[in-house]
């Protein structure tokens, strides 16, 4: 009996000891608070969730905004996670990824006082007054890497591995194809582009198998826009000792000798920009913000050790042309067909 009693007392003493470990500091100043709900990829997806959180962290360091996140384990979590940030009276709630588009619509309806922002989704004309859509002109960076691929290929055959078909991934596909065509025209030769969709954003094994097959069939450079599954594309390139082109972030660290370059889509930067404008009180709700090369949210990395200097210089020229509006990379099939007919 004594033992039990002493055990219970021990429990209380120990737990009360731990209570002192972390002291929470409460400042009286008003803090702008931002909540972020990840999609089912989770915070460590090494892709856009990670990037978005990095953006918010950097914002918090600069401005002292209060930030927090919740990971969604299942799609049924979206509603409850968005709702719990509404309970905490966040000023701004971020939804990372278009899979939350319907949930955001519902949440914005029941919490008109809270501002919402969603990455990779545009509601167009029907954007609610308290929602901001964030889109990227990914076709611009895809065009650049397509151009690089066209200029670098030795087999005159390059590849593209997409995740699940949809407007976002099509921007990458057609931008890339147009870039390859542009390079082919410059070089005066014919370059074939092999397009494959793997119907997943997370199955790296499938991506690897698909890429290996493409490389076996003669592609020496494969670009991927397949989110987390893209790791498989880079692995396949490493095994075949050919080149892969990364996406979203500079993925060279995954295979330093086999990643030619990356089509950077800096979600974090855009998240930071939008949050900053909101903090400053700018009225950007009810709109869709589109970020491109000019805003520094997309582009290619500065250091590309596997890229020849000549090609890199050419790319910088192309980049300038895109920024000046001399080249308009296509983002849809129709735009691509028009582009091709006048090339």
């Amino acid at each position: 009996m004594k033992k039990v009693a002493s055990l219970i007392i021990l429990v209380f003493i120990l737990t009360s000891l731990f209570a002192g470990c972390v002291s929470d500091s409460k400042s009286s100043n008003y803090q702008f608070s931002i909540g972020m709900v990840t999609d089912t990829g989770g915070i460590n997806d090494q892709s856009f969730n990670t990037s978005a959180w990095e953006g918010l962290q950097s914002l918090s360091e600069d401005t002292g905004a209060k930030i927090s996140y919740i990971e969604s384990k299942q799609t049924t979590d979206y509603t409850t996670n968005l709702d719990s940030f509404a309970d905490q009276n966040c000023d701004l709630v971020w939804a990372i990824g278009f899979s939350m588009s319907d949930s955001i619509l519902n949440a914005s309806k029941s919490n008109p006082d809270i501002k919402y922002a969603i990455v990779d989704n545009s509601y167009g004309e029907n954007t609610p007054d308290n929602v901001t859509g964030v889109m990227f002109r990914s076709e611009e960076t895809a065009f650049l890497v397509g151009y690089i691929a066209g200029k670098t290929t030795k087999t005159d055959k390059v590849g593209f591995v997409g995740g699940i078909e949809g407007n976002i991934i099509r921007q990458f596909e057609y931008g890339y194809r147009a870039g390859v065509d542009y390079a082919a025209k410059e070089l005066g030769k014919n370059i074939k582009t092999d397009i494959q969709y793997i119907e997943t954003f997370s199955d790296a094994t499938k991506a690897k198998a698909t890429t290996s097959k493409m490389m076996f069939d003669g592609c020496d450079i494969v670009f991927h826009a397949a989110g987390g599954a893209g790791v498989g594309v880079i692995e396949a390139a490493k095994e075949a000792n050919k080149f892969a082109i990364g996406v979203d972030r500079d993925q060279a660290y995954l295979a330093p000798n086999n990643v030619l370059t990356s089509a950077i889509k800096n979600v974090g930067e855009a998240v930071k920009l939008v949050s900053q404008s909101m903090m400053l009180g700018e009225d950007i709700s009810g709109k869709t913000m589109v970020y491109g090369l000019k805003d520094g949210c997309i582009g290619i990395p500065e250091n590309n050790p596997n890229l020849s200097l000549e090609v890199y210089e050419n790319v910088l020229e192309i980049q300038q042309k895109i920024m000046d509006g001399d080249i308009i990379p296509p983002d849809t099939k129709e735009a691509y067909n028009t582009y091709k007919s006048i090339l």
Binding site: Y78, T79, S103, I164
Partner: peptide
């Protein structure tokens, strides 16, 4: 429960 569908 919303979203009343299945996803990949």
């Amino acid at each position: 429960m919303s979203p009343h569908n299945i996803s990949t």
